[in-house]
Structures are given as structure tokens and as C-alpha cells.
Design a binder for these strands. Sequence first.
DNA 1: AATAAAATGTGAAGCTTTTGCATCTTTTGG
DNA 2: CCAAAAGATGCAAAAGCTTCACATTTTATT
Lengths: 142, 142
Amino acid sequence: MDKTDIKQAGLKVTLPRVKILEILEASGKGEGPRHLRAEDVYRRLLERGEEIGLATVYRVLTQFVEAGLVCRHNFEGGQSVFELDRGVHHDHLVCMKCGRVVEFMDEAIEARQEAIATQHGFTLEDHTLVIHGLCPRCQKPA
Amino acid sequence: MDKTDIKQAGLKVTLPRVKILEILEASGKGEGPRHLRAEDVYRRLLERGEEIGLATVYRVLTQFVEAGLVCRHNFEGGQSVFELDRGVHHDHLVCMKCGRVVEFMDEAIEARQEAIATQHGFTLEDHTLVIHGLCPRCQKPA
DNA sequence: AATAAAATGTGAAGCTTTTGCATCTTTTGG
DNA sequence: CCAAAAGATGCAAAAGCTTCACATTTTATT
């Protein structure tokens, strides 16, 4: 994931785009959560001393999603989260209390979805599966 | 679903609440789509000549959800849709083009989710599964 | 290096949803 | 059935996230 990918997406290689890609790459690699809201990306850019506008962050993230470099998820209430697209599909387990996110992938579920779509005459283009619960830590008495 | 349910939820039986419940009951029974946005409910109230504020619609829908009378879903970008809770869990197939919604329920998927949550130490409280695709009508060449 | 095309920053605007507060309605108990 | 208390409503304003408009700056091209 680097400048080459940006270019191949038909986008010019600009500083904001490169920096945003860096932020996304750093996420989930020990540096905090993998899934970031636009606001989080913006804040991290500021922390790194980059003067990039929030509107640009939104624009670039949207372009990256369209280019297939990034995935967007709408976990809940209005806010979208973004993560680098690693090319492997997966779904999410989200803790209702602390917001922790765990990824998983289940062949059986994937297969059943395909079957259900077909059964109703639909073509399956995409899907969203989010399991909400309490993570091990949050289940413990406060 | 009537005034009794409102009362049992610890809410006063007011005209707005009764009317909103009526709108939800009428939906999905031949009268348009089953899933309504707050705005849709509001519009239908106006059509029926009821002078109920949009803020009240939001407040009442939220209270109904908390009382378990209504389910809220966040199909996509920001907007929530509401439907009367019939007590039977189900997931959704949503057409990406026309927005048509088909409900389904699959034991195999439900079981797998429980297994996955447990496997990661999570307690399963709830889940959201939305399959996006093209419905039979929208697959046909325009 | 000059030019054309595209991207950015800023601030304002858009949308959905929530909130504050004065007023009105329902409920309760006499 | 009426009065008081508790709760609900409407309106308008505010909030939160995201997008837009447009002048300015940067990238890619020749």
C-alpha cells in the first residue's frame, strides 16, 4: 500500500493522500484500533503536525473506498469507520460497552447468505454482519 | 398492539403515541413498505391531518424501541428505520437499487453467530445482518 | 518551465436527530 | 368529577457528522 496504489486508482499522489494512507497503515499495527472514524484520522494527522483539512480527510477516504483501497463500515449510530482493505472479507464483533472490535470470518455463514440471496431471487453484492455483545473484559463485574 | 401496550410500557396514552402506533401497524399491511424512517412516519401523520411535531415522532419512536414495541435498524448511511416488533427475530435483504426489503431468518446463521461470539469470549446480545444485492426486478435490463 | 487538470483549505450549508423550555394533557386521588 | 402533580408535546434552536462551493495551491504534462 503506497503511492503506486494511489496512482493506479487514477488519483494524483498528493501529500494528504499519502499521509492518510500512512495513518491507516499504522492503525491496527499496535498503534491503537484498526477501525478509525474520519475524525480519528484527522486528529492523528494533526498530532503528526500535518495541516490537512477535515473535508479533505472525508474526500480522500471516500475516494479510497471507491478505489477499493479502503473499506467503510457503519457499525452504528451514524458514524462510519474506515480500515485498510486487505483483500480478505471479514465480519465484526463489537463490544457494546467499550467499543472493542474483533474480526472474524465464517464459511458457513457466508455460504448460507449466498443461498438465501439466491432463494429470494437476489444477487448477492455485499453484506454487513455485526454481532453486538460484551467482550470478556466488560463482562467482569465493574 | 394498542393502548394497553403503551400503558404497560410505563408511558401515558397520548394521541401522538396512539397515532404513531397506528401508522406502524398499517405499514407492511399493504400500505407501503414495512420499514419507515422517522420522517416517513411524520409525513404520514400529516397526511392523516394529525398535527404532531417531528421531535415528538423521534421521541416516541425511541421510547417504543426501549419498551420493546418497536425495532430500529440502521440499514445504511445515517438514517434509521423502524418497524413494529413482532417478537420474531429476522434479518434483512435490501435491494441496492430500489431499496426493497425482504426479511429472512436462518437457523444455521443464528447458531454460527452464537458459536463465534462464545469462541471469542463475547456474550451475544444482538446482531445486525443485512445482505445487499439486486432484487429480481432490478436485475432485469433497464 | 509553462499550462492544463486536479486537489486542497476554509467556511458555510445540509441532514438527521436531539434538547431546552414553556405550555398543554393525562393520570391520580380525594 | 375536579384539582394537583407528573409527564408529554411543540417549537425553535442546537448538535453531530458529512458534504459543498469556490478561490488558491499543487501535481502532472508538454
